[in-house]
Simulated assay, not measured.
Amino acid sequence: MAPIVTAQRHSSVLNRIWRIAATGFCFALFGIGGLLLSTFWFSTLRLLVKDRQRCIQLTQSSIRYSFKLFIWLMRFVRVLDYQFYGVEKLKQDAGCIVVANHPSLLDYVFLASCMPRCDCIVKQSLLNNFFVCGVIKSAGYIANSESEILLPQCKEILNNNGMILIFPEGTRTTPGKAMHLQRGAANIAVRCDANIRLVTIHCDQPVLTKQRKWYNIPKMKPLFQLVVKEKISAKDYAAEGDASPAIAARRLTRILSQKLIPEPIKTNEKK
């Protein structure tokens, strides 16, 4: 029996070394690819495409297909695996806010790879970042500024059939701790009179969390499960009694806290 146990342990060590190397390769490729796209392709789009909405559409499509290729590569080199459930529902969500929990650094990549359009709210400081400011401008992303500026921008995007992706936690979830949602997503939904599409992301092992570096890989290959759930209307919460927008947003945030708790799906339950 001893030789068998030794072989199994040796195989596990080799597999882990491979996944560390493959993870490093994927992230290096992601950084280099992002820099090349920002420097050449997105800059070219801004110069040649004068229609702003057309430029935004082409930029976001480029990001989507780049992310599709990236997550396929990670699966191909066995860094991780993933399963998507109900993503076809996103085709019905023009003018909608998409909210999701946030367990990993890859959540935006997974979601943006399957959303027909993905308008994001980004940190104001990123507009001063040389490497990403061009992408932000070309993609039409919104800077997280004062509400007097942010809300009209969100309403304009939603009225133009955009889809705003928001992680209500504001940062990645701390493993083992309950989610704590901020009210930003609910406030935007209530004040812009928008529907919300719920998405949950479950990963069977902690990976690329806020506390873990890219090289702190789990012992086993992680499996991500992205589930597109029901759509809810902000009107249903604003219309209860004479609730003010602030009270309606607070009520809606409580509902989101309950509905965004991810649950693993068995493989044989996949649809």
Rank of each mutant, 00 (worst) to 15 (best):
R78E: 08
D81F: 04
Q83G: 02
Q83H: 08
F84I: 00
F84A: 00
F84V: 02
Y85S: 13
G86W: 00
V87D: 02
E88A: 08
E88H: 06
L90Q: 01
L90F: 00
L90E: 04
Q92E: 10
Q92Y: 07
Q92M: 09
A94R: 12
G95D: 11
H102G: 10
P103D: 03
S104L: 09
S104T: 12
L105V: 13
L105M: 13
V109D: 07
L111P: 03
A112F: 00
A112N: 00
A112T: 05
C114G: 07
C114V: 15
P116T: 14
D119Y: 05
D119M: 11
D119K: 13
C120W: 05
I121A: 09
I121D: 03
K123P: 15
Q124T: 13
S125G: 12
L126I: 10
L126D: 12
L127M: 10
L127K: 10
V132A: 03
V132D: 07
C133Y: 01
C133T: 11
G134Q: 08
I136S: 06
K137M: 09
K137W: 15
A139F: 03
G140K: 15
I142P: 07
S145D: 04
E146W: 13
E146G: 13
E146M: 06
L150Q: 14
L151M: 15
Q153V: 04
Q153D: 11
C154W: 09
C154P: 11
K155S: 02
E156I: 10
I157H: 12
L158E: 06
L158M: 11
L158T: 05
N160Y: 00
L165T: 04
I166V: 09
I166S: 06
F167T: 15
P168F: 05
P168R: 00
E169N: 09
E169G: 14
G170F: 07
G170V: 08
G170E: 04
T171N: 03
T171S: 01
